[in-house]
Design a protein around this nucleic acid. Sequence first.
DNA 1: GAGATTAATCTTGTATACACAAACAAAACT
DNA 2: AGTTTTGTTTGTGTATACAAGATTAATCTC
Lengths: 234, 234
Amino acid sequence: MDALNPTPVRRSEQLGEEIEERIVTGVYPPGMRLDEQELAAAFGVSRTPIREALIQLASIGLVDIRPRRGATVPEMSADRLCEMFEVMAELESMCGRLAARRILPAELARLRDAHQACEEARDAGKPDLYYQLNEVFHRRIYEASHNGFLAEQATALHRRLRPYRRLQLRVRNRMQSSFSEHAGIVEAIVAGDGEQAASLLRAHVVVQGERFTDLVATLRQMNAPAEPEAATAQ
Amino acid sequence: MDALNPTPVRRSEQLGEEIEERIVTGVYPPGMRLDEQELAAAFGVSRTPIREALIQLASIGLVDIRPRRGATVPEMSADRLCEMFEVMAELESMCGRLAARRILPAELARLRDAHQACEEARDAGKPDLYYQLNEVFHRRIYEASHNGFLAEQATALHRRLRPYRRLQLRVRNRMQSSFSEHAGIVEAIVAGDGEQAASLLRAHVVVQGERFTDLVATLRQMNAPAEPEAATAQ
DNA sequence: GAGATTAATCTTGTATACACAAACAAAACT
DNA sequence: AGTTTTGTTTGTGTATACAAGATTAATCTC
């Protein structure tokens, strides 16, 4: 059916994902002005689908649209990021608590697979691969919560925090400790100990938010190479 | 008035809020088709701002847009609603935990004011007023969490669940017990007992989700007055 | 008479055109 | 010389026109 359907999705939706990707990977860095005409030209479409994509991204907080001022990539302050990590920790924690009680055998098997895959990436010393498999691991937990809405929320926020998490895996050699924490989480879920899973997961994520000052410093060097202005709220 | 219109906000944003209001209040019931042309005519604008409003609402899950099929108000299944309440409970809980630790004297005073206002509404036996003041009470807690992102998320979800919560306050005489629970929550926050505030708030919200079957039944009578079809997933 | 296929109509998705507001720059006046 | 005002330019916001897909109805065939 997919083969017969060449374009079953809105163009603006595809564009939205592409722009989101570029924002999230830092191709469009925080503070960058997103000119509709430029984007339209760059993607070879008219302004309309670009506008729709930007509006969509704006409503999930990934771009900032101000009337008659245009769209920009929002500058996420360190405070803001801390707040988001705080919420992320709680969502993950909740997923873990529910998963410990509700996970099905098949799901547990897949969770273990994901965990093992992480181990191999760690042993091979591949942070990029680990990062990717780490995402799968967490997604498995989201799904095992058997709360579709929660899983969606967690996935969305996880995605928004992606670039910062990624940086952190590099800055410090966190692969090792991350993997150990995963092991404890799996154990708690296997044991059906919701509270244990919850608190381990919270700690697992909070760590990422706490060791954060260095991260922000690192990030500031990388993402803001040529920005002498922007002295508003730094 | 359109000529003098000094509005510094996008038209589509205003439209979005208006449409959101109508969805949330049941004027546009679940399953309803949202024809762009009809809406454009109804609001006296062209299709463009309507489209933008719908896309915005779609990205927060308030309408369902399917390519080449148009927009509809999503039918929220009972399962889905339970899931959302489950997440809401956790967000509120988190707000309470943080608020207990971080609330400032001035904020505490305002929280008490809101609580007292609820009491008066209860004594006067005005559920609609109570409902409104209840929102203020909860918003005060969100703010006191000193996590702006969390407060935004909680507010957004609270808003989406509004119609269901409102119904419930009517169906059972929950005003009394709701108020008692509020009292305990305030007490825990005053005492700085984060865990206590968290668990009380979780229970406070979960109750709304649990006594839910009757609610859905009631709701079905009210919101679906003329819908003989729609036998998809009921 | 029933089912399938085709055509017509309706609605969405995209493009283009136009209008208005804001920011920047230049010139004139204090 | 500095400040203010006005004009120009750029870019957003809305409208309209056009194209493509989906649905429905009608007609034709079995």
